[in-house]
Design a protein around this nucleic acid. Structure first.
Lengths: 191, 191
DNA sequence: GTCTATATGCTGATAGAC
DNA sequence: GTCTATCAGCATATAGAC
C-alpha cells in the first residue's frame, strides 16, 4: 500500500502540470519540465495520461470541481440574495488568488489548438452557472441586463490574477466586498 | 518608390504577427506561420526584427499607441466626469472588440519568458493611466477605493474578448454604457 | 531586401527492458 | 509503473548568394 499507485502519482502529476502551465503557459510548458516538477521521467507521464492536451483537460476538471465545491460551500446558511452573491465572490477570489497554482492555470485563455477545448469550455460554463443563479435571485431595477452583469463581475474577478500580488494586494474577501458594493450602491453621489 | 521599403514591409509584418499571436497565442505562433501570413520567407523577418520577442514588443507598441489615441480622441468635447469615463470605455471596447486582431493580441497575459516583458508592462500601464485620471476626476462617496474601481472596470472590459462575438455580442458602446451605469446607479433597489 | 539552405536544439510521443 | 533510449519533426535563428 505504500508503493506508488496509479491514483497518488496521478494527483502529484496534475499538481506539477498545473504549476508548469501557470508559470510558463500551456504551450511553453514542456512535458520534460512537468516530469521534472513531478520528480519522474517524461515517458512515465504517458502511463497516466495519453497526451499533453489530456493533461490540460484533467487539470481543468480538478480545478473547476474544487472551486465549485468551495463556492457552493460558502453559500451555506447565507440567505439574503446580495449577501449570497458576495459570499460566492469572496470564495471565488479566495480560491483563485490564494488556493494554489491550480486555479491560476485555469482562469485564462484556452489555447486554440487543444483537443478537448469544448470540454474545457463546458466545465467552465457549468461552474459559472452558479453565478447565473445568484444574479437571477437578485431584485434588480427593471431593465437590468443580468447577463452583462454576470460577465462584468466575472471579468473583474478573473482579471485580478493579472495584477494581484500576495503581500501587497487587498485580501480576497475585501476585494469581493468592494466589487459587490460598487455594484450594489450607486457611486454617483450627484444622482 | 513602388518597390518594397523597410517601412511598409515592417507594418505588414506587424499585422501578420498580431494576427498569428491572436489566433494561436504567442508561443504556438511560429515564425514560419508569421512569414506565410505576411507572404514572405522566414529569414526575411530577421531583416526587420531581431527576434520573435522583439516582434511581440513592437506589436504592443503599435497597438497601445493606437488605442491610446482612440481613447483620448473620444474625450474631446466631453465635459462631465461620468460621461468622460463612459466615452473612454466605449472607445476602449470599440477598439478592443472591433478594431482588428491587433488589440486582442495585446490584451492578454504576457508570456513569462519574453525579453522586453518590462517594456510591455510599462506600455500597458501608460495607457491605463488615462483611466486613473478619469476615475480621479469623479465625485465619489467617501471611502471609495478608486484603485480597485479602476481595476474592476478594466478587468470587466478586458475580459470581454473571452466571450464577446461579432454578431451576437452587444455593441461595444452599449456594453460601455451598461458597465458604467451598473457602477453609477445602485443596483440594490431595497437600499 | 529577400531569398535558399542549414545549424542546433528542443518538442511530444513511442518502444521495449525491467 | 517507471525506466533508458530514441524517433521524427518543428522551433528560432544564422550564413551567405543574389
Amino acid at each position: 500500500m505504500s508503493k506508488p499507485t496509479s491514483a497518488n502519482r496521478r494527483g502529484q502529476l496534475l499538481e506539477a502540470a498545473a504549476t508548469c502551465f501557470y508559470r510558463e503557459g500551456f504551450d511553453a510548458a514542456s512535458m520534460r519540465a512537468i516530469a521534472e516538477e513531478a520528480d519522474m521521467r517524461t515517458a512515465s507521464i504517458y502511463y497516466h495520461f495519453d497526451s499533453k492536451d489530456d493533461l490540460l483537460v484533467a487539470v481543468h476538471q480538478v480545478a473547476l470541481e474544487r472551486i465549485r465545491t468551495a463556492t457552493s460551500a460558502a453559500l451555506n446558511g447565507v440567505e439574503a440574495p446580495w449577501e449570497r452573491l458576495e459570499a460566492a465572490c469572496a470564495a471565488h477570489l479566495e480560491t483563485l488568488l490564494t488556493g494554489g497554482t491550480f486555479f491560476k492555470a485555469v482562469m485564462r485563455q484556452v489555447p486554440s489548438k487543444v483537443a478537448g477545448r469544448e470540454m474545457i469550455f463546458k466545465l467552465r460554463d457549468d461552474y459559472e452557472a452558479i453565478f447565473t443563479g445568484l444574479i437571477g435571485a437578485l431584485d434588480l431595477p427593471a431593465g437590468t441586463e443580468r447577463n452583462s452583469l454576470r460577465l462584468m463581475l466575472l471579468g473583474a474577478m478573473n482579471w485580478t490574477f493579472t495584477w494581484w500580488r500576495p503581500r501587497t494586494g487587498p485580501a480576497p474577501s475585501v476585494l469581493a466586498t468592494t466589487f459587490v458594493n460598487n455594484l450594489r450602491t450607486g457611486l454617483d453621489i450627484a444622482s
